[in-house]
């Protein structure tokens, strides 16, 4: 078993009102100096078998067709090395 992490973020040019709402709340909490917040999604996929290039390729296809909507979102796919090392 290995964990693959897919991070999905709105493209930079897309307005993110949720991120803005979080950013605006920060001064009230005593956090200064944060000029922008963008909110995204993180998927953790527990993969059975080896995470080789073929497996990562399939996960990239999955991310592109389903986990992210590439009209509005960018994504990255990576193997979670920390989860790997803990075993």
């Amino acid at each position: 078993m290995a964990r693959v992490v897919v991070d999905v973020m709105l493209k930079p040019e897309i307005l993110d009102p949720q991120g803005q709402a979080v950013q605006r709340a920060l001064p009230r909490l005593g956090f200064e100096g944060i000029s922008d917040v963008r909110q995204g999604k993180r998927f953790e996929l527990e993969v059975e078998g080896p995470v080789d290039e073929a497996a990562l390729g399939r996960i990239r296809d999955l991310a592109e067709s389903f986990l992210a909507n590439t009209v509005i979102e960018d994504f990255t796919v990576r193997v979670d090395e920390v989860a790997e090392a803990a075993k």
Binding site: L10, I14, L15, P17, Q18, A21, N69, V71, I72
Partner: peptide, 11 residues
């Protein structure tokens, strides 16, 4: 159809 739908700007 082209484009996408997102949350209302006023949330």
């Amino acid at each position: 159809l082209p484009g996408a739908m997102l949350g209302n700007d006023h949330l």
